[in-house]
Computed example of a mutant assay.
Amino acid sequence: MKSTSTTRMLLASGMMVGVALAISPSAHAVDAAAAEKLARQEGCLRCHGIDRAKDGPSYKELAAKHKTKPDAEAKLIKHLSGGVKVKFEDGHEEDHKVPKTKDADQIKNLVQWILSQ
């Protein structure tokens, strides 16, 4: 009997650890100060506000739209790096500005910061 209850307890503990890992933040913590500095240097904050829309959606809006999707990070990295077209309210389109930095870790940190808003 002890063996069965011990096994059940271990299984339950293992499941709780698995759930905790699944819902815990990424092992790589976001460097918010570096991300915001990069956003300012690259001119991102001219079109995007952190919590209010400008010519582009706010980072809070982007986070709310994307952060629950499993491919959110990859999608936003592609958007930032790919120079895709963006459409404005008046109907005109422009190429989305691509960050000058080619440091993938900086761009990933920026995207993770956006998704954390």
Rank of each mutant, 00 (worst) to 15 (best):
L80P: 02
H28N: 03
A32Y: 10
A64Y: 03
L62G: 03
T6I: 15
L110D: 04
D55I: 11
K60V: 15
T4D: 09
K75H: 00
L115P: 01
K108W: 01
T68Y: 02
L110P: 06
G14T: 05
L21D: 00
M9I: 07
H66C: 02
H79D: 04
I50C: 06
V86E: 02
G82I: 07
P25H: 02
K37D: 13
D103K: 09
Y59S: 09
A34V: 14
H79W: 07
T101W: 11
R46C: 09
S3Y: 07
S26Y: 05
I107P: 03
D71P: 05
K2L: 11
D103P: 13
V30Y: 00
S13W: 02
T4G: 03
S26F: 05
L110H: 03
T101L: 12
L38I: 13
A39E: 04
T101Y: 10
K87W: 05
L80K: 03
K60C: 02
K67V: 06
A29L: 10
T68A: 14
A22P: 01
L10K: 02
S3T: 09
K78G: 07
L45S: 06
H96L: 15
K65F: 09
K87R: 11
G56V: 09
H96T: 10
K97Q: 14
K60Q: 12
A20C: 08
L45R: 04
K108L: 06
T101P: 03
V111A: 05
D55A: 14
A29H: 01
C47P: 00
T68V: 13
P57Y: 00
K37F: 08
C44S: 13
L115Q: 02
K108I: 10
L110G: 03
I23E: 02
T4Y: 10
L76H: 00
L62E: 01
A27Y: 13
P99F: 12
C44Q: 07
H79C: 03
P70K: 08
C44W: 04
E42F: 14
G91K: 05
M9D: 01
Y59P: 01
K2F: 10
D90N: 15
E89Q: 12
V17T: 10
F88E: 06
K108Q: 09
A39N: 06
A29K: 09
K78W: 03
H48D: 09
V17N: 01
K54V: 05
K100I: 12
C47V: 07
E93W: 04
S24G: 07
T7H: 00
D105P: 04
D95V: 15
V98E: 03
M1C: 13
W113G: 00
M15Y: 09
H28D: 04
D103A: 14
L80V: 11
A35K: 02
Q117H: 12
V19D: 03
G18F: 04
L10I: 12
S24Y: 09
K67A: 07
S3F: 08
D55T: 13
T7P: 00
R52G: 08
L11K: 01
G18M: 07
H96N: 15
R40K: 15
D31E: 09
I114Y: 01
G18T: 07
H48E: 08
K97Y: 11
E36K: 14
R8S: 10
M9W: 03
L76S: 00
A63G: 03
